[in-house]
Design a binder for these strands. Structure first.
Length: 363
DNA sequence: AACACGGGGTG
DNA sequence: CACCCAGTGTT
């Protein structure tokens, strides 16, 4: 039995239809690969369409402001991907005359492109024999070969890479081979309870023979989630008849870098007076500050306790003591900025509430 | 080598 | 709740 022949036969009969599989355009393939990093296909697919609709080619992406790219990326997470792809588009425009690099080593130099993505683009767009080693392929290959040690270790990665390089060469079709490896891992050799009984590779699968499928690949347990405590204040500001509010940009090297947010006080135990003091609000205006609600927002590595407050005022009252960090913006223009998911949820919820209130008033 | 970085689906 | 997804960059 020839491994790659069996694999590609399975692939031709079971593959999903995905938009980036029917193109050789390196830009489109690149966009799809960046969006799909650590992201399930169902989650990333709508973002792929949004992205190429907004930025159909390298030039439109390179010329767009970063804020617009982040707007498209809003809600997808790992926002460094958006910053890096925007940066790399300008790399290509300026350093490479707008010509997309065509070899693995050149593609690897792009910001946000690591070994996996460089291999993927090189094979899909340029037929280079560069095997991909993503989560799906690692799972399938480590089981098939019986790689039971820590997958991140150089030695174990090399065992898998050597095997894959041999097989991709035999396949004579590096693009199809890579797609098929990932698809098999995603659809058949699944993380939990793969259906080994009907697997076309079970005869030669070491983990199956050793009854170690469910414990392979070895994963080290993640560190305990740290908690953070965010207090966001929605300023409801009367400003010459234009309902306005305050936002600021997260410039620190931290979660949600370069996204916008409401004025923030990061502190666990909190009283109204803490907020009034922190934002230099008139002491007498504590009655204008209302706690709205609290949500717990789960990230992979953090547990965010987010409390939303609302403070009613007019611009004259606060303008003198206001930090220049904050930007005054009409409330109706908030949708033009990219916000983290919890803030989007708050703004949507607020909008819904006001819709209902105005309906009540009219009836 | 370990950690930071998002958000959401699955069993 | 644990696990993990078409991973990469930084420390």
């Amino acid at each position: 039995m020839i491994f790659s022949l069996e694999l590609i036969k399975w692939y031709s009969e079971n593959k999903r239809s995905l938009p980036w599989r029917n193109t050789r355009n390196p830009y489109l393939i690149w966009v799809s690969e960046i969006i799909m990093q650590q992201t399930r296909v169902e989650q990333g697919l709508p973002y792929y369409h949004r992205f190429i609709s907004a930025f159909p080619n390298l030039k439109t992406l390179a010329n767009a402001p970063l804020d617009e790219v982040l707007r498209i990326w809003q809600g997808l997470g790992y926002y460094s991907r958006a910053r890096n792809i925007h940066y790399a588009a300008n790399q290509i425009q300026q350093d490479l005359n707008g010509i997309f690099p065509s070899t693995y080593l050149e593609i690897l130099k792009l910001k946000g492109v690591g070994k996996y993505t460089a291999s993927a683009i090189a094979s899909f767009a340029f037929d280079e024999y560069t095997p991909v080693l993503d989560g799906n392929v690692i799972r399938f290959t480590s089981r098939y070969l019986g790689v039971y040690g820590e997958v991140a270790k150089k030695e174990n990665a090399k065992t898998m890479e050597d095997f894959l390089l041999l097989e991709i060469k035999k396949s004579k079709a590096p693009d199809v081979f890579n797609q098929a490896m990932m698809e098999f891992g995603a659809l058949h050799c699944t993380p939990q309870n793969p259906n080994c009984k009907i697997c076309i590779f079970k005869i030669n699968c070491r983990a199956f023979a050793d009854n170690k499928v469910n414990s392979t690949p070895l994963v080290k347990k993640s560190a305990k989630k740290q908690k953070r405590f965010f207090n966001y204040v929605y300023f409801d500001i009367e400003n010459k008849g234009i309902p306005s509010t305050l936002i600021s940009k997260r410039v620190q090297k931290d979660i949600w870098q370069d996204l916008y947010e409401l004025p923030l006080l990061e502190q666990e135990k909190i009283k109204k007076s803490d907020i009034v003091d922190f934002f230099h609000l008139p002491k007498s205006s504590e009655k204008n500050l209302k706690k709205q609600f609290k949500i717990i927002h789960q990230l992979s590595h953090r547990e965010l306790h987010v409390v939303f407050w609302e403070y009613h005022t007019s611009l004259d009252v606060i303008s003198d003591t206001l930090s220049p960090l904050y930007e005054v913006i009409p409330q109706i223009k908030l949708s033009q900025k990219a916000f983290p998911v919890p803030i989007v949820s708050f703004l949507n919820r607020k909008e819904e509430t006001e819709k209902i209130l105005s309906l009540d008033k009219n009836n």
